[in-house]
């Protein structure tokens, strides 16, 4: 198993968002997290991605406690949150290049890094916009710049918070295809989405569900 979650609980200002959550994320699984607003979906994703240390219970990554192997975990995890994480004053290429420099070991130098970024931008349909400052792009295109990080692809665990926001129908389908392909190749995906996500996912055999009932309960459907 990749990520093992035991007795996870989170309390904010004396209110328990969830408690005693036991859950495993295995290679090849695509987890969809559902639940009403404010039930703790985003908080859960932030805990899973190692951004919040304020929880009870244990998280282990390949059998090792998460706090012990932070570097290795961060290197193989990709998180995209509500805020896209894209600098508007920089071009799409510069944005991706920073991510690539932060997350990969340099093989073949800056040149190879740039080529990889070009390919990733092409894959999200931004060919020809590489050198445009992001602020000149449309909202959907800006979102695609963030999603191009998926196409740079070397992280094994994807954690995506509402990735379908502001993307057109074709884009949603493409993203779904990517997520499924990622799982089939042995990766895992955890995703939240408020609109009953897409058309392709529900039929997929890799899909699993995690439901927040809004009263502090979490149900794992395998």
């Amino acid at each position: 198993m990749q990520l093992d979650i035991q007795k996870l609980g989170c309390e904010r200002d004396e209110r328990w968002l969830f408690s005693d959550l036991d859950w495993q994320i295995n290679p090849g699984e695509l987890w969809r997290i559902e639940g009403p607003n404010g039930s703790g979906k985003t908080t859960l994703l932030r805990i899973l991605s190692g951004q919040m240390a304020d929880y009870t219970g244990t998280l282990s990554w390949h059998g090792e406690k998460l706090s012990r192997c932070r570097e290795a975990f961060m290197a193989s995890m990709l998180y995209i949150g509500h805020r896209p994480g894209v600098k508007k004053a920089l071009t799409a290429l510069e944005n991706l290049d920073w991510y690539q420099a932060m997350s990969t070991v340099e093989e073949g130098g800056a040149r190879a890094r740039r080529d990889a970024c070009f390919q990733a931008l092409e894959a999200v349909g931004l060919a020809g916009f590489e050198e445009t400052p992001v602020e000149a792009l449309s909202a959907g295109q800006q979102r695609r710049v963030a999603l191009a990080r998926l196409a740079l692809g070397h992280q094994r665990l994807w954690i995506l918070d509402e990735p379908f926001t502001a993307i057109d129908r074709d884009g949603v389908r493409q993203l779904e295809r990517w997520m499924m392909a990622h799982c089939e190749a042995g990766g895992s995906v955890v995703v939240t989405s408020h609109h009953d996500s897409g058309e392709l996912l529900p039929a997929s055999r890799v899909l699993r569900n995690l439901r927040f009932d809004g009263q502090g309960g979490v149900h794992v459907d395998c």
Binding site: A72, W98, A101, V105, A120, L150, G153, Q174, H182
Partner: peptide, 29 residues
């Protein structure tokens, strides 16, 4: 729009360098 993208490659990725991250962030800022 191809679905062709590099999948998970290795079991254990070598970790990216400290200096590389420092330089990239400094340069970007």
């Amino acid at each position: 729009m191809t679905a062709e993208r590099a999948g998970p490659r290795r079991a254990v990725e070598p970790l990216p360098g400290l200096w590389q991250g420092f330089a990239a962030t400094l340069g970007r800022d």
